[in-house]
């Protein structure tokens, strides 16, 4: 009865792959940032699913952290694109 989780994980993995194609194709920087952000969201869902499949509840902590880091990473990347500097 684990096949449902596997199919869902494969669907999300396929979605992450499509987002990766968009990140490689571009054409603007903002398209790439958007695609990477979507990729990060997919990663969070995949981590939670893998934690359920492998029966490891520790994966959920990693998913919480990754959701936070994903948002902060997007904002930091946008600031870098805006000013071309990491620090003021």
């Amino acid at each position: 009865m684990n096949s449902v989780e596997l199919i869902t994980a494969l669907l999300i993995l396929g979605g992450a792959f499509l987002a990766l194609i968009r990140a490689v194709k571009g054409p603007t920087v903002y398209d790439r940032v958007l695609a990477v952000n979507v990729f990060g969201t997919k990663t969070v869902i995949l981590l939670a699913l893998l934690g359920y499949i492998g029966n490891r509840s520790g994966f959920l902590d990693i998913a919480v952290l990754y959701a936070l880091v994903n948002f902060l990473g997007t904002v930091a990347l946008l600031r870098f694109v805006e000013s071309r500097r990491f620090f003021q």
């Binding site: 199919i7 869902t8 994980a9 494969l10 669907l11 999300i12 396929g14 979605g15 992450a16 792959f17 499509l18 987002a19 194609i21 968009r22 958007l34 695609a35 979507v38 997919k42 869902i45």
Partner: peptide, 13 residues
Amino acid sequence: GGFFAFSGSLGIL
């Protein structure tokens, strides 16, 4: 949910 996540990425592409 998996289907929606997949079609969201398809839309982005």
